[in-house]
Design a binder for these strands. Structure first.
Lengths: 110, 110
DNA sequence: TATTATGCATTGACAGATTAGGTATATTAG
DNA sequence: CTAATATACCTAATCTGTCAATGCATAATA
């Protein structure tokens, strides 16, 4: 079962921030992690991912630096800022609230 | 706390279908019901609501008829079809799945 | 040597949501 | 009486995040 993108929409930023709270990481790795954590059902579209990096960088939630790989493709590492940590916290809280409201709204009895 | 519209996006159709599973209803009433059930935190934008009615009608998930009100503004009542019931069921299942996946993706530890 | 995996990035199109506007009737406050 | 509010419907233009398609480059594998 594939997740409809409209259901995941709006969570992209929070998902990326959650990953970066664990450790600095780069696009490809983050996407593979998402695929793994979702049990193979969900993978961010690359364009969506890089658009999100841009958005998060502009917002001051993440910074980046180029990795020092001697072999293989170059990697652009992202690092979460203090502002980013606070934003993640807000998003996580908002998700918990929204989740319950949607549960209520989708129920057919009280 | 207001729900970010991007978090509710994609649930509009399911929310409306859930309401219509209880009884036939009309736009204004559905929206007030959503406001009430969400504890006053969420109300569909009218344009969003009427766009959704159009979409659901086109999809064959709902039908409508004009109410027989003798007084007050006229009401357009919507009724859920069998196809609509099946669609609701799929959406509800998809939500349950997606909810858990998002919980996983937003977690910062295993 | 051709394919797959790793890795970054942009462009144009699309769909659902918002903003802003419109119409009309009934009730309530001043 | 009359202005404001609540009830009730609807649409056009615009915004925003996502997707499909495409491009570039290196390393490992078949």
């Amino acid at each position: 079962m594939t997740i409809a993108s409209d259901l995941i929409r709006g969570h992209t930023d929070a998902i990326i921030l959650a990953h970066l709270l664990r450790r600095d990481s780069y696009g490809y790795e983050i996407n593979k992690s998402i695929l793994s954590k979702s049990g193979g059902t969900y993978e961010l579209n690359e364009a969506t991912l890089y658009t999100a990096f841009k958005r998060l960088t502009d917002a001051g939630y993440i910074t980046f630096y180029w990795g020092a790989e001697k072999i293989g493709a170059r990697r652009k590492y992202y690092h979460i800022t203090q502002q980013g940590r606070e934003a993640y916290k807000r998003m996580q809280e908002e998700w918990q609230t929204t989740k319950q409201i949607i549960d209520n709204l989708l129920a057919t009895e009280d």
